[in-house]
Write a protein that binds this DNA or RNA. Structure first.
Lengths: 104, 104
DNA sequence: AAGGAATATTCTTGTAAGGGAATATTTAAA
DNA sequence: TTTAAATATTCCCTTACAAGAATATTCCTT
């Protein structure tokens, strides 16, 4: 799977999306996330695993706690990908007429 | 579901992702997409349905063909969402030390 | 050393969703 | 007005995956 697909897949799950939204405020422990989102701890750990595998978050172990924080790279790469569409909105389209004429 | 989640969900499926990548070159019919990606027509139609429902593509019916083309808005909105993370990479993080000190 | 917190992992189950095959629908062409 | 082409839809099956519950692991505290 391409990098973007991995990132998209991780972000597309509602609870993971919420976790990411929550982490934008600052790093949090598993328990804090679970409390905030009213999720059970195991599910949070599992979602964090996916986010971690996809590179979207990073762990910092402190004693028996684990502090998760967002990682910029996947976000920046996804934005770069989206950026490659910019030319398209300006140039190529809105010339549908000509394309249709050729098809006829 | 929020707009971004809808967009992410639609893009996160590999075949739909490929369809989007293909459509960036220009508008295409269902058959052309099926041929290019070596997918069966019904599956392509089904994926296009999801992409259409999420606003990522638009249909233009011509005779018994249907020409699909990308729609800029969801892409732009997703990029805007990603853009709201920019401040985060610069400011808040990389001060994890202080946060940890407070937790102790 | 023992007990308790915080987190991760495993197993099971239920469900959403994609693929395959068949069929319906629409439109052009003969 | 039949026939064929392009596309959409439906039904069935299978698989991926998220939730729940229980358990394992790690580290602190006493």
């Amino acid at each position: 799977m391409g990098e973007q697909l991995t990132t998209l897949h991780a972000l597309a799950e509602p609870n993971r999306f919420h976790i990411v939204e929550l982490l934008r405020v600052g790093p949090l422990t598993v328990g804090e996330i679970a409390d905030s989102l009213k999720l059970r701890q195991p599910q949070v750990s599992k979602h964090l695993r996916v986010l971690s595998d996809s590179g979207l978050v990073e762990v910092q172990p402190i004693a028996n706690r684990r502090i998760y924080k967002l990682q910029s790279q996947p976000f920046l790469e996804l934005e770069e990908w989206l950026d490659t569409f910019r030319n398209i909105w300006e140039d190529r389209f809105d010339r549908l007429d000509e394309y249709l004429k050729d098809m006829k």
